[in-house]
Structure formats: structure tokens, C-alpha cells
């Protein structure tokens, strides 16, 4: 009996250490974002302090506000999500359900496009976008985001389309409904769950992307992940403000992560089984 108790205690201790290790950097950033610079820099680190909203006020409404950058991130992420879904849903349906020559090859092609290292895409793309004047534009960034969001979305959606029973489609055809109407009215409502999961992933990946953003952004289009660098330089780090910006950059994805927790785990697992997924 005691051995059992000991075992339980050990398991509890190990669990606590890991949970703390994962949560702490995030909690600590949140705490720091409510401090003054001198409280952030205090030694030993302060767990108890008088909280202030000063850092948030500064980064949101002060000079060099990051509000435009948060808006930039939102436009890029929502834009990428919409364009990706409009293209991926029909393609995934065709790959999952229709018979045509070269279907295997088409599926394989989608999979291999994920092997290309992003740096190998951005070098030529930078040259092209520079020529047509699309650096520092939303269309430039959203277009190149399709390179990773589309293959991922198609693969994830295919597995959901494959799960729908065939009979429903056949019944609709026998009623004389057209293919497009069947797809829209009968099939898409069945994969609502899968579409929701895919939307969450595409949004997350677009919000979090960094390499393409750092190369293609400028004064007009600069997502928050890139703008964060305004707060650290060789000369000085604006500690509390950096914490506030980090928290603001984390907020949408953490909320999404907690709300869509089950869907995300399901998406990850399907990805792991099917072999999709990039970052």
C-alpha cells in the first residue's frame, strides 16, 4: 500500500515539474507585462509587485504603437485562411471522392510540395515580388503563405472527406441533384467539423509565420512577430513593453488553442497518421 502511495507521489511530482516547465515562461511573460521596467529587472525576480497597465498603454497607444501591426497580422491570417479554404475544400473533395486519371500522382504532388524548405521558396519569390512591386503588400505575403497552408489544408481535409458515407452522395445523385449542388448542400455540411479544425490550423500557422514575413514586410505590412524587434536592440531592451507585446502576440493563438483544444489534438493526430503537416 505504501509503495503504491509513494509511486503516486512520484508521479505527481514529475507531472507538476513538467506542467510548471511548460506553463511558466508564458505565465512569467504575462506577469512581466504588468510590471515596470525596474520590477522586471529586479533581483531576485519579483513574484509580488504592484501591477500596472503602463506597458500596455505605451505599446498600444504611445508613439510607435503596435496596433497597426496587430491589424496587419489579423489581415494576413484571415486573408490566408479564406483563400486557402476556398481552394483547399474543392481540391480535397476531388482527391478524396472523385475518380480521374493521375489521382495518385496529384496526391503525391501535394505531399512533396511540403518538402521544400521555406528558405528555398523565399529566395526566388523575393526576386519575383521585387520585380512586380509586391514587397510590403498583403497580396504578396498571402500568396506565398499558400505554399505551406494549401498542402496542409488539403491533406487534413481529405481525411475528413474520406470519412463521409458514400450512400448520402449517391442518394443525392439519384434525386437528380448536380454534382456541385451535392457538394455544397450534402457533403460540405458533413465535414463542418473538419473544416473548423483546418481553419484553426491555417490561421495559427499564418499568425505564427516568421521567415517570409521578415523578408517581405516593410512599413505598410509588418506583422506583430516582426514588429516585436522594435523593443530589443543592441543598445537597450524595453523590458516591460516587450513583455506586453509578446502577450498581445500570444493572446489570439492561446485563446484559439484553449477553445479549440480538442480539435487541435485531433488535427495533430490525423496529421501524424496521414503524414501531413509542416510546422
Amino acid at each position: 500500500m505504501t509503495a503504491r502511495r509513494l509511486r503516486a507521489a512520484v508521479i505527481l511530482a514529475i507531472s507538476a515539474v513538467f506542467l510548471l516547465a511548460w506553463a511558466f515562461p508564458i505565465i512569467w511573460s504575462v506577469l512581466n507585462s504588468f510590471k515596470t521596467d525596474s520590477d522586471v529587472l529586479a533581483y531576485p525576480p519579483k513574484l509580488i509587485f504592484s501591477p500596472t497597465l503602463g506597458a500596455y498603454r505605451e505599446v498600444l497607444f504611445g508613439s510607435g504603437s503596435i496596433l497597426p501591426n496587430l491589424v496587419s497580422s489579423m489581415i494576413i491570417s484571415v486573408g490566408t485562411t479564406i483563400v486557402t479554404m476556398l481552394m483547399a475544400i474543392p481540391a480535397a473533395y476531388a482527391l478524396a471522392r472523385l475518380r480521374f486519371h493521375g489521382k495518385k500522382f496529384a496526391g503525391f504532388y501535394v505531399l512533396t510540395t511540403q518538402m521544400l524548405p521555406p528558405v528555398g521558396i523565399i529566395i526566388p519569390y523575393f526576386l519575383v515580388l521585387q520585380t512586380i512591386g509586391w514587397i510590403d503588400t498583403y497580396q504578396g505575403i498571402i500568396l506565398i503563405y499558400l505554399s505551406f497552408s494549401l498542402p496542409f489544408a488539403i491533406w487534413l481535409l481529405v481525411s475528413y472527406f474520406e470519412d463521409i458515407p458514400l450512400e448520402m452522395e449517391e442518394a443525392a445523385y439519384l434525386d437528380g441533384a448536380s454534382r456541385l449542388r451535392t457538394l455544397w448542400r450534402i457533403i460540405i455540411p458533413q465535414v463542418r467539423g473538419g473544416i473548423a479544425v483546418t481553419v484553426v490550423f491555417v490561421f495559427l500557422n499564418a499568425w505564427n509565420e516568421f521567415l517570409f514575413a521578415v523578408v517581405l514586410s516593410g512599413n505598410t505590412v509588418r506583422p506583430v512577430t516582426v514588429a516585436m524587434f522594435n523593443f530589443v536592440s543592441v543598445e537597450q531592451t524595453l523590458w516591460a513593453k516587450l513583455a506586453a507585446v509578446s502577450v498581445l502576440a500570444m493572446l489570439p493563438v492561446v485563446v484559439l488553442g484553449v477553445v479549440a483544444q480538442k480539435q487541435i489534438v485531433k488535427g495533430l493526430t490525423i496529421g501524424a497518421v496521414k503524414g501531413g503537416g509542416r510546422r
Partner: peptide, 8 residues
Amino acid sequence: PVVLSPAV
């Protein structure tokens, strides 16, 4: 951690 941006 999984949903966070590696940059952040």
C-alpha cells in the same frame, strides 16, 4: 507552447 509563434 504548440500554438505559439516560434518567434515569440
